[in-house]
Lab assay of single mutants.
Amino acid sequence: GTVHVGDKTYHFPTPDAAKKFAQEIAKKLNLQVTVKNGTWQVH
């Protein structure tokens, strides 16, 4: 899975790992999470 946070991109071996990371970052930074075609965006 891929997660975009601002101008950074993180790659994870599984979709679940990407989802978990995106949700944790969003919670920590009080941001929104959207997913499109398996790519997570934190914004």
Results as ranks from 00 to 15, higher is better:
Gly1Gln: 10
Gly1Asn: 13
Gly1Val: 08
Gly1Ala: 11
Gly1Trp: 14
Gly1His: 14
Gly1Thr: 12
Gly1Tyr: 15
Gly1Arg: 12
Thr2Gly: 03
Thr2Ala: 08
Thr2Asn: 05
Thr2Pro: 02
Thr2Phe: 08
Thr2Met: 09
Val3Trp: 01
Val3Cys: 04
Val3Gly: 01
Val3Ile: 02
Val3Gln: 01
Val3Arg: 01
Val3Glu: 01
His4Val: 15
His4Tyr: 13
His4Glu: 10
His4Leu: 15
His4Ile: 15
Val5Tyr: 10
Val5Ile: 13
Val5Trp: 15
Val5Phe: 14
Val5Pro: 01
Gly6Ile: 08
Gly6Trp: 12
Gly6Gln: 06
Gly6Pro: 01
Asp7Ile: 10
Asp7Pro: 11
Asp7Gly: 14
Lys8Phe: 10
Lys8Val: 09
Lys8Cys: 14
Lys8Met: 10
Lys8Ile: 09
Thr9Ser: 08
Thr9His: 06
Thr9Arg: 06
Thr9Lys: 07
Thr9Asp: 05
Thr9Cys: 07
Thr9Ile: 14
Thr9Glu: 07
Tyr10Gln: 01
Tyr10Arg: 01
Tyr10Lys: 01
Tyr10Gly: 00
His11Thr: 10
His11Glu: 06
His11Met: 08
His11Lys: 09
His11Tyr: 13
His11Phe: 12
Phe12Cys: 06
Phe12Tyr: 02
Phe12Glu: 00
Phe12His: 01
Phe12Met: 02
Phe12Gly: 00
Pro13Gly: 09
Pro13His: 09
Pro13Leu: 08
Pro13Lys: 13
Thr14Arg: 04
Thr14Phe: 05
Thr14Ser: 10
Thr14Ile: 03
Thr14Leu: 04
Thr14Gln: 04
Pro15Phe: 13
Pro15Val: 11
Asp16Ile: 09
Asp16Ala: 13
Ala17Val: 05
Ala17Ser: 08
Ala18Trp: 03
Ala18Ser: 02
Ala18Cys: 03
Ala18Asn: 00
Ala18Gln: 00
Lys19Gly: 08
Lys19Tyr: 12
Lys19Asp: 06
Lys19Asn: 07
Lys19Ile: 06
Lys19Thr: 05
Lys20Tyr: 09
Lys20Trp: 10
Phe21Lys: 01
Phe21Tyr: 07
Phe21Gly: 00
Phe21His: 01
Ala22Cys: 03
Ala22Lys: 00
Ala22Tyr: 01
Ala22Met: 02
Gln23Leu: 15
Gln23Arg: 08
Gln23Val: 12
Gln23Gly: 06
Gln23Ser: 08
Gln23Asn: 11
Gln23Asp: 08
Glu24His: 13
Glu24Lys: 13
Ile25Met: 11
Ile25Trp: 07
Ile25Gln: 06
Ile25Arg: 03
Ala26Asp: 01
Ala26Ser: 06
Ala26Trp: 03
Ala26Ile: 03
Ala26Met: 04
Ala26Leu: 03
Lys27Phe: 11
Lys27Gly: 07
Lys28Asn: 06
Lys28Trp: 07
Lys28Thr: 08
Leu29Lys: 04
Leu29Gly: 05
Leu29Val: 03
Leu29Tyr: 15
Leu29Glu: 04
Asn30Asp: 07
Asn30Glu: 05
Asn30Gly: 15
Leu31Asp: 01
Leu31Gln: 06
Leu31Phe: 07
Leu31Lys: 05
Leu31Asn: 03
Leu31Arg: 06
Leu31Ile: 05
Leu31Thr: 07
Leu31Ser: 07
Leu31His: 05
Gln32Lys: 12
Gln32Met: 12
Val33Asp: 01
Val33Ser: 04
Val33Leu: 11
Val33His: 03
Thr34Pro: 01
Thr34Arg: 06
Thr34Phe: 09
Thr34Tyr: 10
Thr34Gln: 06
Thr34Asn: 05
Val35Lys: 07
Val35Tyr: 15
Val35Pro: 04
Val35Ala: 08
Val35His: 14
Val35Gly: 15
Val35Trp: 15
Lys36Tyr: 12
Lys36Asn: 13
Lys36Ser: 13
Lys36Phe: 13
Lys36Thr: 13
Lys36Cys: 12
Asn37Gly: 09
Asn37Ile: 04
Asn37Gln: 06
Gly38Asp: 09
Thr39His: 15
Thr39Pro: 02
Thr39Val: 15
Thr39Ile: 15
Thr39Lys: 09
Thr39Asp: 11
Thr39Gly: 08
Trp40Asn: 02
Trp40Cys: 04
Trp40Ser: 02
Trp40Met: 04
Trp40Phe: 14
Gln41Ile: 15
Gln41Leu: 15
Gln41Pro: 02
Val42Leu: 07
Val42Asn: 02
Val42Ala: 03
His43Thr: 11
His43Asn: 10
His43Gln: 12
His43Met: 13
His43Arg: 08
His43Leu: 12
